[in-house]
Structure formats: structure tokens, C-alpha cells
Amino acid sequence: MISFTPFSTLHEAEHEVYNDDEAMDIDDDVQVSKITLPGETITSSQAYMRGHGTYVDNELVIASVAGTIERVNKLVTVRAVSTKYNPEVGDLVVGRITEVQPRRWKVDANSRQDAVLMLSSVNLPGGVQRRKLESDELQMRTFFEEGDLLVAEVQAFFADGAMSLHTRSLKYGKLRNGQLVVIPPILVRRLKSHFTTLPCGVDLILGLNGYIWVSKHVQENEQEGEEGFDAETIYSNRNDPIDESTRSAISRVTNIIRALAAHFVPLTDTLLLEAYEWTVENDIDAKSLLSEDISDALVASIAGGT
């Protein structure tokens, strides 16, 4: 009674749909970026392997997200523009505490599930390696409270896919003296170091989950020392005094990041530096960076330079 005709290829005029393997063989080296939609047939599953963002039905590889088709040898994946963060072990993430539970904190890290930070994987005050005590369990809120921001590393995964974080390094821990910017995680590339310092007196932490922390620069020698470091400062909720020029530099950098993210420009430290210099040269203040024509001009100038 009700018969559906096969899915007609809708956009043949503007982007050709892959037919089995003939279209796939165009060029092995050149990355052809094609946009696809959920339900659209990409290729046959006998010739290609399905990757993320695809599924197989009737020996056909079909896209399940809207985004660009990417191919590495025989593996076909579809990458969506905005998705949740997919964690991997060793990734640096910035997160926010959402809940305090027995012996653990729950952390929102822009992932599908809340991340877990165990009490045993944070640096406890009063010693480098010391066993956690019952008293530590009772005063967990003195370390991290709901709403606190922290930088951590993905340590492992639980059986249900939730990630476990750790802050057992001097570089990790509670964040203060700065501002958080949220951008699509796809725009943060894996870098040698995700801690960068811009010459304008601003420290950046590029979390791979798309959370970026922009803060006042802290001198190397002023960082809290390893031996017998003082819990007061490392878990403090108080900002240090921040002078006017640093404040404006921080807001300028955050607005640059927002402007670049709005144009889907992947972030790197050199790009940010270039953009910062451009704003100083053209005498643009932090506020006007949010206007559309200035952010367009910014993106055009740095895209032209690279």
C-alpha cells in the first residue's frame, strides 16, 4: 500500500553523493571534504570500513551525523561540526565541579557523561605522597567545591565509559585569576604543550574538551613548590590582585578566541599571538572585537597572513 521510493540524491547539483566506490577513488592523497547528512548513503560496506559518525545497513555505509566526510585509506568517518568531547587517556581538560560525592567529585568536562575525580587522584596538602585519611574525606569541600574550575588530565576510563581525571601534578589543580571561554572541542588541536604563555602577560590553558582558561601570568619561580606546598594557596578561592592592563589583556584574548571560534578557525598559540598583535596594531579594544565586521577583518587578516 505505502511504498517509499528509494532515497533520491537531493543535492547532486552541488555535491555529488558517493556511489559505491567509483567516487571514492578520485584521489587518495587529496582530502576532498564533502558534507553529508544523517541517513545519506556514503559508500558500500564491502569496499570500505565504517568509522565514527556512520553505521552499516544493507551492506551500505550510511552517515549518522551532519558534517564532513573524511577518509583515511579504507576507513570512512563523518565529523560533525559541533559535538560533545570524546575523551582519550592523557588529554588535558578543563572542567567544573558539579557534585561532591563520597571520596570523589563529579566534573562537567563537556563530555557525554560527567567525569570523575577521585580523592585519591588529587594532591593532598602537607606532603608529596601521602595516604588519604578519613579527615580528608570529611573535608573534601575545602579542596574542591561545586562550581570550582580545575585543570586535570584524563587518567583512565571506567567500565561505563566515564572518564577518570587526576590532578597529581603541580601544573594541574584549581583555577583562579582568570576567565573561561567555551568553544567547540573540534577547534582545539593536540599541541606539544597545552599550557602557553602569551607575551602580553596572559597564561592560556587549552583544554582539549573545548574549555579554555585565560588567566594572569604566574612566574615560574612563584609557582607553589613541590615540597611541603601550602594548601592554602593551591586550593584557595581568592584571586590575586590583578592590575588593569592584565585584566584588559585577558578580556582581549578571550574575545579573540570567541571571534576565531565563531569563524571556525582552529586555535594555535601562534595564531592567537598574531591575532593579538593585530588588535594592538589596529588599536582595537576588547569590546569592539565582538562586533561582526571587526571579527571578520581579524579572521581575514590572519588567514591571509598564514
Binding site: L37, P38, Y55, I62, V65, A66, S82, T83, K84
Partner: peptide, 11 residues
């Protein structure tokens, strides 16, 4: 849902 990048069988 598609804009959120959630996996769908189709639209």
C-alpha cells in the same frame, strides 16, 4: 538533533 551532532539513523 542533527545540529547538535547527535548520531541519528536519518532525519
Amino acid at each position: 538533533l542533527a545540529d547538535a551532532g547527535i548520531e541519528l539513523f536519518g532525519l
